[in-house]
Simulated scan of single mutants.
Amino acid sequence: MPKVLGKDSTCSIARSLGVVGDSWTLLIIREALVAGSTRFQEFRDALGVAPNVLTTRLASLVDEGLMTRTTYREQGARTREQYVLTDAGRSLSSVMAALAEWGRSHRPRPDGTSPQFMTADSGATAQLAFVGADGEKLPPEGLVAVRTPDVPPAD
C-alpha cells in the first residue's frame, strides 16, 4: 500500500516524497549519480547502512522504476546483482543538485564535500536555476509557488 503523506497526498511533492523521501534512499541515489555505484557492496561501503535497510531501499527503488536490477558475474565468482539508475532515477540529478547547493549555502562545513554537476564532454560546471520562458534566469526570492493541476483540463 502506498504511503500517504499529509492531507493533500495528490500533490506532486507528496507523491515524490512517497518514493524518495527517505534519507537512505536519497543517499543511495547520490552514490549512484556521483560515485557511479551499482553494486550492493559499493553502496554498503560508501554509506555504512545496515544490509537489511539497503536491501529494502534498493528493492523499493527497483519497484518504483528508479533503478533496474541486472545480474553480473566476475571471472570465477558467483552471479550477483547490480543496480543501475533508469532515466527516471538519473533525472533526480536536478533534485540532488538543489540539495547539494542548499547544503553548501545553509549547512557549510570546513571538512564538507559537495557534488558538483558538470558536462561530461567539456567539464563545464552546470548551474541550477529557475529560467523564464524567455531564457532569462529568475531569482528564487522573486518567485511564488501556486498549486496547479498536473494535466490541464481538456477543452
Rank of each mutant, 00 (worst) to 15 (best):
T70I: 06
A100R: 03
R44A: 13
G48M: 08
L33M: 03
K7W: 01
T25I: 15
E81C: 05
V20C: 04
A77D: 01
P115H: 06
L26Y: 10
R73G: 02
V34P: 01
T38N: 01
S37Y: 02
I29W: 09
A46N: 08
L27W: 10
P51E: 06
T68F: 08
L85Q: 00
R104Y: 07
V20F: 03
W102S: 05
Y72R: 03
A88L: 15
P110A: 07
R73F: 01
R44L: 14
S114H: 08
D8N: 11
L5S: 00
N52I: 06
G65H: 07
A50I: 05
T86F: 06
T10D: 13
Y72S: 06
I28T: 09
V4K: 14
T55D: 13
A77N: 10
Y83S: 04
C11W: 12
E31N: 13
E81N: 15
M96G: 02
T70E: 15
T79W: 04
G6E: 03
L5R: 04
R69Y: 13
L85W: 00
H106C: 10
D45Y: 12
R30T: 11
D8H: 06
L61V: 01
R39C: 11
T25A: 14
R104F: 04
L33W: 07
T68L: 08
R78Y: 11
V84A: 10
S9Q: 11
A32L: 05
E81M: 13
A32W: 02
W102A: 14
V20D: 05
R73T: 12
L66H: 00
T10R: 03
T71F: 03
G36F: 02
D111I: 03
T113I: 12
Q116H: 15
F43P: 00
A97L: 11
S9V: 09
